[in-house]
Simulated scan of single mutants.
Amino acid sequence: MIKKVKQALENGEGCRVYGVLDVQRVAGNFHISVHGLNIYVAQMIFGGATHVNVSHMIHDLSFGPKYPGIHNPLDGTVRILHETSGTFKYYIKIVPTEYRYISKEVIPTNQFSVSEYFSPMTEYDRTWPAVYFLYDLSPITVTIKEERRSFLHFITRLCAVLGGTFALTGLGIEYDMHVGCLGEPEY
């Protein structure tokens, strides 16, 4: 088995990880690494921790169902390592979100923001490289709702546009103003 894995690594093959995790609504983490292997086997396959390549591409990472207009900041993230190895850490702040459709249907989901940190391996490190996702939940819930605007709102916006157009076209007209004095100035 070790020979097959080493041959796959030499051919540039890697792992494809996908799935769904159910977690409690408390801070935590999940990570992808090789330190779950027997250290002896990992040493035979990779020749040491500094030779483990944790390059990765995140196609899709979300914390709940998607809703119209959502942007998940890690989707499409690519991190390629060439001559070094190390540990990636993604610090994720999750914000509980309710999306309310016009039809009154409510989707409970989450949005998140992320910051990342890379720590390169040195020959003195005693850990193995990994990709960590450390998350924390916000105590505040955001509600996004679809709604129709009233006809009065439409009329108000229309009047604002027409008034602005009239004001801008009126700027080109010159006015002649005459200022008159009562009497002549004294010297």
Rank of each mutant, 00 (worst) to 15 (best):
H56Y: 09
R157D: 15
F166I: 14
V142S: 04
G76N: 03
S33Y: 04
D136K: 01
C159V: 07
G47H: 02
V17A: 15
T97P: 01
S119H: 08
K93V: 01
P108N: 09
L171T: 15
E10G: 15
R126D: 14
F30Y: 14
H35T: 02
D136C: 02
H56K: 12
K145V: 05
L171Q: 07
F166P: 00
I107A: 02
P73Q: 12
A167E: 01
V54I: 08
V78Y: 08
G19D: 11
D75C: 10
K4G: 05
Q7V: 07
G163K: 03
H71V: 14
I140E: 10
L61Q: 06
I32E: 09
Q24L: 13
V142L: 12
T141P: 00
V17K: 06
M44N: 11
S33W: 02
L37E: 03
I173H: 09
H71K: 14
T141Y: 01
Y90K: 01
F154M: 03
H59K: 13
G172R: 11
I45H: 04
P68I: 09
T141K: 10
P120Q: 05
E116C: 06
Y91D: 03
E116Q: 07
E116K: 02
P120V: 03
T109Y: 08
D176G: 12
T77M: 14
G19T: 09
R25C: 11
H51L: 05
Q24N: 12
G183F: 12
K3A: 13
P96F: 01
L61P: 07
G163R: 02
T127M: 07
V5N: 00
T156I: 13
E186Q: 12
E186F: 05
E184T: 15
S150N: 08
C15H: 11
M1Y: 04
E184P: 03
G180T: 15
G28E: 06
H82M: 06
N53H: 09
S113T: 15
I140H: 10
P139M: 03
S62H: 13
E123W: 06
S115K: 12
G28S: 03
V34I: 13
G48A: 07
F166T: 09
R126G: 13
E83Q: 15
Y67D: 06
Y90H: 07
S119T: 14
G48E: 06
V34Q: 10
S113G: 12
L152F: 06
V17E: 05
L74K: 04
L182C: 03
H178G: 03
L168M: 11
G180S: 09
T77P: 01
S138M: 05
E186A: 08
M44A: 11
P129C: 02
N110P: 03
E105G: 01
E184C: 10
L162N: 01
E105Y: 14
L21C: 08
I2A: 00
K66M: 08
I140K: 07
K6T: 11
Y187M: 06
L162K: 00
H59D: 11
V95D: 00
G76D: 04
I102E: 13
S55D: 02
K4A: 11
I92T: 08
P65W: 03
I80E: 14
Y91R: 05
